[in-house]
């Protein structure tokens, strides 16, 4: 089957029930999305599918259809940061960093549809992304800063 990741087409031949996460990581070598739990409890595997946030460990590749996948690598790069990534760096959010691909993908999608989020909304959207290092206080600041930056254009 053909899948579209970060704007490139890939041919993969795998069991249709293989989770997208493992197609990305092991078949395609795209390791930005991480494995943390495999049961949608941590969000480290978060990608965008046609722009919508999805836990790639919960999406079987057969259910992807011809929708387009964006991983953290497709959101931005060290040379061309997405506004959320720039805010994350400015606010020094990451500690071990393992959960942050998922955190950033979650925040980036959310800010597209909720450009001026309240604290309650941020709490509702970001709380299914687990961080064992406890970076939450700076995630909050970075989301708000990114929202502001995106609004300013």
């Amino acid at each position: 089957m053909q899948i579209d990741v970060n704007g490139k087409a890939f041919e993969v031949e795998v069991e249709p029930e293989m989770p997208l996460l493992w197609v990305l990581r092991d078949e395609l070598g795209i390791t930005g999305p991480k494995y943390g739990c495999g049961i949608a409890q941590c969000g480290a595997c978060t990608v965008h599918v046609d722009g919508f946030v999805v836990r790639s460990c919960q999406l079987a590749v057969r259910d992807l259809g011809n929708r387009k996948v964006t991983t953290i690598e497709g959101l931005g790069s060290p040379e061309a940061l997405h506004a959320v990534q720039a805010a994350w760096i400015e606010h020094q959010v990451a500690q071990c960093g393992y959960c942050q691909s998922g955190q950033i993908m979650q925040a980036a999608s959310f800010l597209k549809t909720n450009p001026n989020p309240s604290d309650e909304q941020i709490d509702a959207v970001m709380s299914s992304n687990l961080c064992r290092c406890g970076t939450y206080p700076r995630i909050r600041s970075a989301v708000k800063a990114a929202a502001k930056k995106l609004q300013e254009g």
Binding site: T31, Y35, I72, P78, C96, G97
Partner: peptide, 16 residues
């Protein structure tokens, strides 16, 4: 932190 950009762009490689 010197590793911050890598950790915020999915380019930091962990053992896994």
């Amino acid at each position: 932190r010197l590793d911050m950009p890598a950790k915020c762009t999915g380019t930091e490689k962990y053992g896994i």
